[in-house]
Design a protein around this nucleic acid. Structure first.
Lengths: 195, 195
DNA sequence: ACCGTATCTGAACACATGTTCAAATAGAAC
DNA sequence: GTTCTATTTGAACATGTGTTCAGATACGGT
């Protein structure tokens, strides 16, 4: 026995991605075996190697694609307005983008230590690019007198950490709507940097 | 060959703890084997089982003890002053306590998913207790008109997330002193909740 | 000096791991 | 209908996993 019905690269490829994302997010990269992923897809373990050279690359590509999507989506937002407008745009974007992909986000910042040094460096580079977008906003607001920030680097990381916290508890259909959550975080972020 | 020179429960026990903390923090619970821990201690894998019934309990006790220490240390801080004083005390305590134990902290919130359901529930209970301390402060400040917070539950988690961010970047001997870091975070936290 | 016990070793167990590959087959192209 | 190739299987490989345990040994008490 070998090739099964309905087998095709266009189908199996994405299904492997989806299964890996779900399983890595749920149990962690190290705790998930190639056989578990294969079983979830409905295929034997060996078949996975038509789509990834090894387990490490599977993780790396997941994270790399996620970070690229993040940067591309933020870029597509466009610019305009003053620093406060830009900050508000950033907060809203960050919350919504991340809540739409909880599994990818979880992986992207929980599995960094399971990347090889080379892969780690590349992902870190992408992450830095995103942080720089926020730091640029804060820096500009500080220059123009709109914000009052002791250290823009600290503030950047503090704001991102604060926003990331939303993923540890928010569940759609819960007590608060997405708009209410966004409003609450925006209030806190705005006040934490405003002069 | 068997029992080696200088072997004693009082020595090996703590060394196993320390090795497990370091290795779990560095590579993750699932990626660290009992043999690696044993090698780090300078002992055979079998010897570990004089100190822990199994690998899971090793992780659980690490996290449980850490959370208990956290709660005990915060309790020992004492009370007094208004909500703003209490909040300042909380911020300073949280930053300092967590920066003193980066490995334990890392484990305590990265390895939750590797706990059995029972163990997970117990750790979550302790974490909740700690969060309630902060929520109490915010709630009291809101009642007394000192703070202006839309939702104390969100604010609690946002503040803790913000403070936890410090551990992702702070290194002693870096650009900023501990006092400067504490001051910067306190400024942001205060402004984010103050009326 | 001897004994008893706490402590550790080393080997073993059964099973899981990532990865490779010849052989088998389903679907596309003609 | 035949051929060709992309795709999958199933078995195998070497190594690693958590855990157990009989036997060996060093230390504390007498």
């Amino acid at each position: 026995m070998a090739r099964t019905q309905g087998s095709h690269s266009d189908i199996t490829g994405p299904r492997i991605r989806e299964a890996a994302i779900r399983l890595f997010a749920r149990h962690g990269y190290a705790a998930v075996s190639m056989r578990q992923i294969a079983k979830d897809v409905g295929v034997q373990a060996g078949a996975l190697y038509n789509y990834t050279p090894d387990k490490q690359s599977l993780l790396y590509r997941l994270m790399r694609d996620h970070m690229r999507e993040l940067l591309a989506a933020y870029d597509a937002l466009g610019q305009g307005g003053d620093a406060q407008d830009a900050l508000r745009r950033f907060v809203g974007f960050h919350i919504r983008f991340h809540l739409e992909r909880p599994d990818e986000v979880f992986i992207a910042y929980m599995e960094l230590r399971n990347l090889t040094p080379d892969n780690f460096a590349e992902i870190e580079d992408l992450r830095r690019k995103y942080e720089n977008e926020l730091e640029g906003i804060l820096h500009q607001g500080q220059q123009s007198g709109l914000f009052s920030i002791a250290d823009t680097k600290i503030a950047t990381l503090a704001v991102i950490a604060m926003l990331n916290g939303v993923m540890t508890w928010y569940r759609s259909g819960g007590r608060l709507s997405l708009d209410e959550v966004e409003q609450a975080y925006w209030d806190m972020v705005r006040r934490s940097v405003t002069a």
